[in-house]
Design a protein around this nucleic acid. Structure first.
Length: 225
DNA sequence: ATTGCTCGGATGGAACCGGT
DNA sequence: ACCGGTTCCATCCGAGCAAT
């Protein structure tokens, strides 16, 4: 397997110099520590899940601009309250112009409130669960989001984890193309075999380069385009 | 060996929300 | 029309099995 330094060199070439790459890398905050992650309220996880779900396949700007309306319509994303959503409350949301009225996505909020409450019951808080989940097994965490959460199985779940401060790679189109170029995987399918190979590659690069998954993931993307 | 059957997984296409 | 995408549904494909 190619050393991560060689991939970084590729990214520097693509971005026109080490300074340019550094500037791009500095645009984002690094991951939080598990201790920091644990202190986040579970309502914030539901808020971020909802945001990335609504942004999926849609103009991110629209969601960003309407976000205060979402916070108000969903009552601050209180998981206890949203886990029990009466029919009339759902109907009201469907007619609330302060949010984007996509019925399936609105439904995901209740499903994910229940999901987070289940995690909290089992682990003290959902935040604790996410904070303590081993970084070396992100595909395991992605599997939990896919199987037990609603609409969190793809990139939306990964974006949400990263935005909350969990150390995360994101399998965007660029990253997947980089992984194919490096012969980590042979095609773009998210088969079990490919996911295992992806995790192993990230773990290898992480331990040999000393960089976070966030950095490795972004540098891979920058090495493509 | 061939056929017919089921089942799970892969694959493809369409629908979906609103502001610019 | 476009958009850092997911899901639903329809369909197809191949493996596995049992009966001829």
């Amino acid at each position: 397997m190619k050393s991560f330094e060689d991939i970084e060199t590729l990214a520097i070439e693509k971005k026109g110099g080490a300074d340019q790459l550094s500037a791009l890398m500095a645009e984002h905050n690094g991951p939080k520590t598990p201790v920091e992650l644990e202190t986040i309220g579970d309502d914030r996880w539901l808020s971020m899940f909802t945001k990335t779900i609504f942004q999926a396949g849609f103009s991110w700007k629209v969601i960003e601009k309407k976000w205060p309306g979402f916070e108000e319509a969903f009552e601050g994303f209180d998981t206890a309250r949203l886990a029990f959503l009466p029919d009339e409350a759902f109907e009201a949301l469907l007619n609330n112009k302060a949010i984007v009225r996509n019925a399936m996505k609105i439904k995901s909020v209740q499903a994910n409130a229940i999901f987070l409450r289940d995690l909290a019951e089992a682990h003290g808080s959902a935040s604790k669960f996410f904070a303590q989940y081993p970084v070396e097994d992100q595909i395991g965490l992605m599997d939990v989001l896919k199987k037990r959460g609603s609409r969190l199985g793809g990139n939306s779940g990964q974006y949400a984890l990263r935005l909350m401060g969990k150390e995360t790679f994101i399998l965007s189109r660029d990253v997947v193309n980089a992984l194919i170029r490096e012969n980590v995987i042979g095609n773009e399918s998210m088969s079990k075999k490919n996911l295992t190979a992806i995790q192993e590659a990230f773990n290898h690069w992480r331990s040999t380069s000393g960089r976070s998954l966030n950095e490795i993931s972004r540098i891979l993307a920058f090495s493509v385009g």
